[in-house]
Design a binder for these strands. Structure first.
Length: 289
DNA sequence: CACTTGACCTGTCCGC
DNA sequence: TGCGGACAGGTCAAGT
């Protein structure tokens, strides 16, 4: 479930914790999901930490980068030389999840601390490659725009959605080649804010709907970042702390609970094979499909 | 060709 | 209580 806000929260933690550190060693027990040659980054220092879609990218000062995709259950935990973790300033107590543990699949030792990669379901992947080659990776080719970038606006959203006009809106929001960074949680929340039914065909959305959708996407993602992400099971930030976004969610995982706006009971359906939460009163379908 | 479904994994939750 | 099965969600491959 790490989506854009969760990955961005971890990225910000990494910027605080690991910039300038020298990598001393790498261990992994899951080489199938750890591609590239670790020697290419051992001995180098971290120069920059950035993000594209849901992928974290750590640039080293020797022209190589470490890419990390957390997929559903991936976690990164950093402890400094004294075993201390960074604090996210959360209103809830830290979990103090011990590391390493049985889902730890990679350990990065630095001159200033240790970074653990945990992944219960082993869907995540790590890749070491030349920084200059990143944009040529198959994963990055064709990736849609970053929804929070300045260049992205209502006009762009309309342009890219129009190409998919016969499809239901929610699966398109999840398509990383259309827009990058949105996952199941923020797709549902964005559609609620825009008052659009998740099964609405794009063709039947008017300019006002698309404008509201743009605003909904931006608001949902920014609110997610503000609350350090959404933790419904295993997501934690770099300090091992949960995000609290779901406390503020309007529909996600609120099946049977009252809509925050109209008190109608939130419903759960399956759209494009994904659990989908919406308010049947606030998000009425325009046409019967 | 465009779109939908299943596989990848494992921990958690629900019902019998 | 114990066990089995459904379910969770990101992405790619396979299927329709």
């Amino acid at each position: 479930m790490p989506e854009l806000p969760e990955v961005e929260t971890i990225r910000r933690g990494l910027v605080r914790a690991v910039i300038g550190l020298k990598l001393l060693s790498v261990e992994t027990d899951n080489p199938k999901k750890f591609l590239g040659v670790d020697k290419d980054i051992v001995g180098a220092r971290i120069k920059k930490v950035w993000r594209r879609a849901k992928v974290l990218i750590i640039d080293f000062d020797n022209g190589n980068s470490l890419l990390i995709h957390l997929k559903m259950t991936g976690q990164l935990i950093f402890e400094d030389k004294k075993g201390k973790r960074i604090k996210g300033g959360h209103p809830i107590p830290p979990l103090n999840l011990p590391v390493p543990n049985k889902s730890t699949h990679a350990i990065f030792k630095f001159d200033g601390g240790v970074m653990y990669f945990n992944d219960i379901r082993k869907f995540g992947w790590l890749l070491i490659t030349l920084t200059s080659e990143i944009s040529n990776l198959s994963f990055f080719v064709g990736l849609g725009p970053e929804p929070l970038e300045k260049e992205f606006n209502k006009k762009k959203l309309k342009e890219i959605l129009t190409l998919k006009k016969n499809l239901k809106i929610k699966p398109v929001l999840l398509d990383q080649k259309v827009l990058s960074g949105i996952g199941n949680i923020y797709a549902d929340e964005s559609l609620f804010l825009a008052k659009i039914h998740p099964e609405e065909r794009i063709v039947s959305l008017n300019d006002a709907d698309l404008g509201a959708l743009y605003d909904g996407i931006v608001t949902a993602l920014k609110t997610g970042i503000k609350h350090k992400g959404a933790s419904d099971s295993s997501y934690v930030d770099l300090g091992g702390e949960k995000g609290v976004f779901l406390t503020y969610a309007n529909v996600y995982h609120r099946t049977g609970m009252e809509c925050t706006y109209c008190k109608t009971k939130i419903e759960r359906i399956v759209v494009g094979g994904r659990g989908t939460h919406f308010c049947p009163n606030c998000q009425k379908k325009k046409h019967i499909c």
